[in-house]
């Protein structure tokens, strides 16, 4: 009984992620931004107090958004609403579930609440998405109950280099499992620090057990087309739509055009003509921060591995 209930729960959780495939999930901080995102064709919005570029610039402790803010955003749109909790902060996750958000992102963008444990996501009805940089990390999160994986990239930079590295690493790690025999899979599971059963299932199917999206530094339509062609099944865009730079919001008309353009480029990623049209339409992009200029302690991706 327990196993069956759990299995149907996971099917519903990954089922919603299936519906988001090929789409763009946009970070928003107000009901107005959420409405713009929906109108532009976002498949979901991520409700936040501050956008990652602002968190990076302003510092301080980044926590779950205020419930009032999330409620406002939920009331403004008909598409799914996600919200972030701190890594390991299961009480924030409980609050978000109680609030009725459609997905919880246990996110390295917020300040971690637990230095060694993630949330036991099996204990929740609401589905979770978690970030990962390689296959081992992705499968550890799946073992904990994540129903959707996204690359970590380096949030709030507008620099795609880390997301590309993480996506390529995950895809290559998966491909490499295909040539291993049964004995080698045990050794590989040990190296990946992931459950053998999950490693074996990935070796057999050639894919993650849950959908695999891309996040962290996507700022232009061509960025979205790049990661979709590298194997991402959908994209999260954080700072790239509503920010002009690390501290200022972009003019609303710019944000609308960028949002529509990134949606079009994601849907038509393999059609350069369509990506060209979208790129011309977007006209501007956030200034961004070169991720190579960041010192180790400034990286968000090394949180909760």
């Amino acid at each position: 009984m327990g196993e069956t209930a759990n299995n149907s729960g996971l099917r519903l959780k990954t089922g919603l992620a299936e519906m988001l495939k090929g789409g763009v999930i946009m970070d928003v901080t107000t009901a107005r931004q959420a409405a713009i995102a929906e109108e532009a064709g976002a498949v979901a919005v991520m409700a936040l107090e501050r956008i990652p570029a602002q968190i990076r610039a302003e510092g301080g402790v980044a926590r779950m958004a205020a419930p009032g803010k999330i409620r406002e955003i939920m009331a403004a749109v008909s598409i799914p609403v996600m919200a972030k909790c701190r890594i390991g902060h299961f009480a924030e996750a409980q609050v978000l579930q109680e609030l009725g958000v459609d997905y919880v992102d246990e996110s390295e963008v917020l300040t971690p609440a637990d230095a060694s444990h993630h949330v036991d996501k099996h204990a929740f009805t609401v589905p979770f998405v978690c970030g990962a940089r390689d296959l081992g990390e992705a499968l550890r999160r799946v073992a904990e109950g994540a129903a959707l994986i996204r690359t970590k990239g380096e949030a709030g930079t507008g620099d795609i280099v880390h997301a590309v590295f993480h996506l390529r690493t995950i895809v290559r790690d998966i491909r490499a499992l295909g040539v291993l025999d049964e004995a080698e899979l045990f050794a590989r599971a040990k190296e990946l620090q992931a459950p053998h059963e999950l490693v074996r299932s990935v070796a057999r199917s050639g894919r993650l057990p849950v959908p695999n999206f891309c996040a962290g530094g996507i700022a232009t339509p061509a960025d979205a087309a790049l990661v979709m062609q590298l194997g991402a099944e959908a994209v999260f865009v954080g700072s790239g739509i509503f920010m002009a730079n690390s501290t200022d919001f972009a003019p609303e008309e710019d944000a609308i055009r960028r949002a529509q353009a990134i949606v079009a480029a994601t849907a038509h990623a393999e059609d350069p003509k369509a990506v060209l049209e979208a790129s011309a339409e977007a006209a501007s992009a956030m200034k961004g921060i070169g991720a190579s200029a960041l010192a180790g302690a400034q990286l968000l991706q090394t949180r909760g591995i």
């Binding site: 519906m19 988001l20 495939k21 090929g22 789409g23 929906e38 109108e39 532009a40 064709g41 976002a42 498949v43 979901a44 008909s78 598409i79 799914p80 529509q260 949606v263």
Partner: peptide
Amino acid sequence: GESTNFLR
């Protein structure tokens, strides 16, 4: 999927 996305 999301019908609003299809329409857009």
